[in-house]
Design a protein around this nucleic acid. Structure first.
Lengths: 151, 151
DNA sequence: ACTTGACCCTATAGTAACTATAGGGTTTTT
DNA sequence: AAAAACCCTATAGTTACTATAGGGTCAAGT
C-alpha cells in the first residue's frame, strides 16, 4: 500500500513541498523509491505526518514537534516530560493572547484619535504615532510573529 | 546636533543593525556622513525612527509602516486612508486573538487527556495527537507566526 | 509510436523582520 | 602608544515554509 507523494499530500492536507521539507529536516524518515525515483510512502508515514501536522496546528514549533516525536518513538519513557512540554507551550499561547489583547486595546485607542479630521495634517492617528510615546511599552509586541518566530 | 548611530539606537531603543536595515529598506533616509564615514543623524531622523518603532510596536508590518510614512510625508492628503489602514490592522489583530484563544482551548483540552498516566505508552496526549483528528480544523492556526508572517 | 499533460525529482532562492558573523576602519579612553 | 569601544560593508542565518528553474517519469489519448 505504498502511495506517492501527491496522494500523501491529499490524505494529510499538506503540500508536497512541505513533505519534502519535513523529510529534509529529519521529521519524516526517507521513504523507499520506485524505479523512477518517486517516493513511496507507507501507512506509518501517513500516521507520522498526521501527527506532525496535528502538532503544527496546535502552534508548536518544529523543535517542539521533534521532541514529541522522540517521545513517541520511545514509548517506555516517563510521560511527565510531555506534560511539561505541553504546559510550557500553553503558557506561551496564553502570554501571546494577553499581549495581542493589549495591543488591540492600544490600537483601538489610537484609532479613536481620528474622529472627524479631514486631512493628514490634523489627523490624530499620525500625531499619536509621532508623539504619543507611552504606547511603546512592550518590546515583545514587536515580535508579533507568533509563538516561535525569532523576535 | 548630529548624533552617531549608537546614540540614535539608545534614544530610540532600537539596535544599530536594525537602523541600518531600515535605511536599506528605504524607511529611513540616508544620513550625512562624517569624514570617517560614520552616519550622522539629525532630529528629523530621530522623529522618523520613533514613528517607525511606534508602528512596529503596534504590530504593523513594514509594508504598512511604509504606507503610513507616505501619508505622513504628504500632509495635505485625505486621512481616510489612514483610518482604513488602521481599521484593517485592528481587524487582523482581532482575528488573531480569536484564533489564539481557540488554540489555547484546544491545547488545554489536549492537556487534560494526560491525568495520571505514567508512561508514554498510555499517555493521552500523544494518543490525542495521533488519532484525534478533529483538532486539525483550521489551517490558519499553522500560521501562528503572527499577523504579517507568510503562512 | 508519439504527444501531451500531470506528476515527480533536486537544487536553489525567496518570504518577513530582523540578527549574527566576518573582516576591517575610526574614534575615544586609558 | 595601546586598548577598548564604536563604526563600516557584506553576507549568511533564523523559522517554516514557498516559489522557481530545469529536467525526468508516468499514464492517457491520438
Amino acid at each position: 500500500m505504498d502511495i506517492k507523494i501527491g496522494e500523501l499530500a491529499s490524505r494529510t492536507d499538506c503540500q508536497t513541498v512541505t513533505i519534502r521539507y519535513y523529510e529534509k529536516e529529519g521529521l519524516l524518515p526517507k521513504p523507499m523509491r520506485s524505479s523512477g525515483n518517486y517516493r513511496l510512502y507507507s501507512e506509518a508515514h501517513i500516521e507520522r505526518l498526521n501527527f506532525i501536522r496535528h502538532c503544527r496546528s496546535l502552534g508548536m514549533m518544529l523543535v517542539e514537534v521533534r521532541a514529541l516525536l522522540r517521545f513517541r518513538d520511545t514509548p517506555n519513557q516517563d510521560c511527565s516530560q510531555i506534560n511539561a512540554l505541553l504546559d510550557e507551550h500553553i503558557q506561551q499561547v496564553e502570554t501571546r493572547v494577553e499581549e495581542l489583547s493589549q495591543l488591540k486595546s492600544n490600537l483601538i485607542a489610537l484609532r479613536e484619535k481620528c474622529v472627524g479630521a479631514q486631512t493628514i495634517e490634523s489627523c490624530g492617528i499620525l500625531q499619536g504615532l509621532s508623539h504619543d510615546s507611552n504606547l511603546i511599552d512592550f518590546k515583545d509586541a514587536l515580535a508579533l510573529q507568533g509563538l516561535g518566530c525569532s523576535s
